[in-house]
């Protein structure tokens, strides 16, 4: 099955596979470091939901779930995994 950033539970990480999004937002996400092969970890969710925080390239950014669902990733891994 294919995973997206939305399926990444808080406290786990994975590698980016590709972006299913075009236009300005694609550029923005690429600029953040969401390019193929990069590591991305989920740091937590907004208390009311809908928005989650991810660590990419050493910085933390929050993205809405609708957008996160368009970022395809490898299978989620726990902290200890490689």
């Amino acid at each position: 099955m294919e995973y997206t950033l939305k399926d990444l539970p808080a406290g786990s990480w994975s590698y980016v596979k590709r972006l299913d999004i075009n236009g300005k937002m694609r550029r923005r996400l690429l600029d953040l470091g969401l390019v193929k092969g990069n590591r991305v970890s989920c740091m937590g969710a907004s208390p009311l939901g809908g928005l989650r925080a991810y660590q990419i390239c050493g910085a933390v950014v929050a993205i809405r779930d609708e957008d996160a669902a368009l970022v395809l990733i490898d299978r989620p891994r726990g902290w200890g995994d490689e």
Partner: peptide
């Protein structure tokens, strides 16, 4: 609602 990215420094 449009896409946006919120930086958490």
């Amino acid at each position: 609602p449009s896409s946006f990215v919120l930086e958490l420094p």
